[in-house]
Nucleic acid binder design. Structure first.
Lengths: 335, 335
DNA sequence: ATGAAAGCGCTAACAT
DNA sequence: ATGTTAGCGCTTTCAT
């Protein structure tokens, strides 16, 4: 259809400089050649606008400069923020992001990961992933991989940014308990797809420990997914005194439902989120939530990957400790 | 570092089937060969798990299955939604998104576009772009490109999804005017980078037409960018009676500022957004804004690109008409 | 209908 | 220090 571009090739640069292609290749990477040649070739490349073709280089086995970024669901606002932050860090390192959204289907994550590897990404960053499976081992074995969130047990990743979910959950339930809540609904997007997830396990365990009755309710990721569910949940006569949403996006849907039902937050029902999103503090009432430092997470993840790409074999690990931001959406239950 | 994967190659498949590589290549694409061979090769491919290497194919000049997606700024929540929607549509077509965030720097957009072309994306989808420049012509000439938002005048794009910004702006200003507002501050993220943008031009023109005094204020994209600015703007004695934000994200920052200043919306100041975001209706008061159907936009853009990739040379164009959602953040100015 | 051979642009052995 | 050669995995002439 339209005319393909006519990029300068290494052979043209070779002809231009009077060298061979390989000499040029070496010169551009500053190996095997004299400093003088390096300089001369660099300048020549500049002149004719030569830049190595990433695809050809990739075919040969080299790096592409692309990093695969796998997200559990972009419908979740916090994940959107994470993608933004990670992409920003990647760009600072001269890398591109090949983003793949599993859209809530854990099964799709592996499939996407494989595709990304097929596309020769130099590395992989995977955030909220479904339950660990053997197949991740093969992936992580073929390309450096960094996880964000829950770690993939038994998988030889290059690094992991682990969320201390337990302490986040503990703090949240403790907060509600202190306020006097004894019956709490917990809305989780992972219940059906990844039942053994740390967060849900922690909820059950800690609730039992402090003598709190929790109802775990599976819930779609997004604002629109949680609204109808919350309508049901809160319309019933014996509604819980508090709702703990394992994602702020879910909490937004609950706000919506409360407004429709004429329920006041926190007078009639307390609402808590998770993974504090910038908007949460703007809501009325401002949403109590648990914050992870997204920028720090993104920086660590890309840093780990960068180190692995640079040949550093040491597995790195960072545990991110959350901050409970008790705001106006939680209070003692009404009588 | 870790062992590279050992994908089946076309030669292996050739050996396996007793055919030549070229015959296999043809068979897989169902050309030049007997139906029987096609079937046999397909089955064999299945058996040994062969799939064409996208990188090798790309080097040869074929398609990569990757689409470049250029966003003006991912700091903007609406853009995040757009990316999500577009990626979803792309995935439905079996395509991957190589996402590039210009992060508010229009100059970076072209640079990113070039890089994406270097990476052999099959096509390009570019949303909020800076001012049109000649260089876009070269890009759009080398790879099918679809724009979202303002069209790139004079650039041979494969398609454009054009926002009828004028009518959005007109409706918004009209709405404020009807309520009785005569002095309105307009917060725009494009003022410095792309002064001639349709939206800003429309604001000036229509404000003059209806006898409204507007102050155009340049403003960073995000919530955090607009807050300090709004603090200044609204603290002054002769503050405008309404603030029109050319992005909901900006409006969120204004909400924040109002809360800090103890200003009531809309009693003390009316606030309007643009590009309705799902959260806007949840705010208190709910934010008056102008909605574009994101899903429709994404569908059209990927559809246009898909058609172009399929060889359809006809340039396509869709004009998206906005809906003004008058909500609770706008009212008659107080006395 | 199928095979042989060339080549996309690059890099890494192996000369020299 | 530089040149020659041989591929990476695929598609496409050009033969047969």
């Amino acid at each position: 259809m339209t005319g393909r571009r006519k990029r300068a090739t290494i052979r043209e640069l070779a002809a231009y400089t009077g060298l061979s292609a390989s000499a040029v290749s070496y010169a551009l990477r500053g190996i095997h050649v004299s400093a003088e040649t390096v300089e001369r070739v660099r300048r020549a490349a500049e002149e004719i606008g030569y830049e190595a073709d990433p695809i050809a280089r990739a075919l040969r086995g080299g790096a592409t400069g692309m990093v695969g970024l796998i997200v559990g669901s972009l419908a979740d606002f916090w994940n959107q923020e994470l993608v933004r932050a990670v992409m920003r860090e990647l760009r600072a390192r001269g890398l591109h992001a090949l983003v793949a959204d599993a859209d809530g289907e854990p099964g799709r994550e592996l499939e996407l990961a494989r595709r990304l590897v097929d596309h020769r990404v130099d590395g992989l960053i995977a955030s909220p992933v479904g339950p660990p499976g053997d197949d991740w081992g093969a992936i992580a074995g073929s390309v450096p991989m960094v996880t964000i969130g829950d770690a993939l047990a038994g998988v030889p990743t290059a690094g992991e940014v682990v969320f201390d979910t337990d302490s986040g959950v503990t703090a949240t339930l403790g907060h509600l308990h202190t306020l006097g809540h004894r019956r709490v609904a917990v809305l989780s997007w992972a219940l059906e797809t990844s039942p053994g997830r740390r967060a849900e396990v922690a909820v059950r365990r800690h609730a039992e420990a402090i003598g709190m009755e929790v109802m775990l309710v599976p819930c779609a990721y997004s604002l629109n997914g949680s609204r109808p569910l919350a309508l049901d949940l809160l319309a019933s006569a014996d509604r819980p005194s508090a709702v703990f949403c394992l994602s702020d996006s879910i909490a937004y849907g609950v706000y919506h439902a409360c407004a429709e039902l004429g329920l006041a937050i926190p007078a009639d029902v307390s609402v808590v989120g998770f993974d504090d999103h910038p908007i949460s503090r703007l809501l009325q009432p401002s949403l109590t939530s648990t914050a992870w430092d997204v920028e720090a997470v993104a920086r660590a993840a890309t840093g780990f990957l960068g180190d692995a790409l640079a040949g550093n074999a040491a597995r790195q690990r960072m545990v991110v400790v959350p901050t409970l931001l008790a705001r106006a959406s939680t209070a003692a239950p009404g009588v």
